[in-house]
Write a protein that binds this DNA or RNA. Structure first.
Lengths: 130, 130
DNA sequence: AATCTGTTCTACACTTCGTAGAAGAACGAC
DNA sequence: GTCGTTCTTCTACGAAGTGTAGAACAGATT
């Protein structure tokens, strides 16, 4: 799946941050406003479109072609995506428990607590994601 | 830090698998033999050298210039590196606990057990790796 | 039909990565 | 100390990925 480029990431962030699907133009605006920090430079809509197509191709974005200004949304939540990425990386390792040990060795106490809580309250219903 | 390319990864794997530091030529040989699966094609030593330099530049490889055939070793263990990558990804997320929840939702029961064990075992003093 | 708005095609520059030859540097043999 | 061998560095190029956007095309509105 690989890591995304800067623009790709910004666009995904905007999509993840949005409740409802967005149009290319809306994204263009939210990119100008919301993010970027210092810039302020407006991107061309076609640029946004191009990146959206690429993200769709990568399976990260779903496009609704039924409506006229096409609507775009992230195919999975940010958390899901991130968790998947983490698993991908973990899975590529030969020595998973060792990695997990190191991983835990680096988490903050709060996160450790969070993890403990999650592991002890097992609401393992979510048989979702194929 | 980003993901590595195929060759870069193979070389890192060889370095991680090795107890002691290796020379470029040794790496070249172990690449031919150990990995690759189907190929069998021998890389030029200069290719290995180039990639090693790039990896050194990225901070993943440490080179000992004191001895003549320079010796190369991974700057950190595979597990450490992987764990760091996972943290990097996790850190880029705004909603860490949510990600962790999703992450745990995807781990195998064995891994969950491993994690439980690690979280309950004595505080990992290991103040190693800077 | 003409126009406006949004989408697709095409394109280019820049970076990263795989790949390696040519040139340079160090070290042992003589 | 010079010669040859061995190793490293420099330089380079092609493929892929990404940021960027104009040109051309399609659907809706009047």
């Amino acid at each position: 799946m690989a890591q995304l480029g800067d623009l790709e990431r910004s666009i995904m962030d905007a999509l993840w941050a949005s409740e409802s699907p967005l149009t290319a133009t809306e994204l263009q605006e939210s990119l100008e406003a919301g993010s970027a920090g210092v810039s302020g430079k407006q991107l061309a809509v076609t640029t946004v479109l191009t990146v959206l197509s690429r993200l769709e191709h990568k399976g990260l974005v779903v496009r609704d072609r039924a409506v006229r200004p096409h609507l775009y949304r992230a195919s999975s939540s940010h958390a899901d995506h991130t968790a998947e990425l983490m698993h991908e990386i973990l899975g590529a390792s030969s020595d998973r428990s060792e990695v997990l040990a190191r991983f835990l060795g680096q988490v903050s106490p709060e996160e450790a607590a969070t993890l403990r809580g999650l592991l002890n309250s097992p609401p393992r219903d979510s048989g979702l994601s194929a």
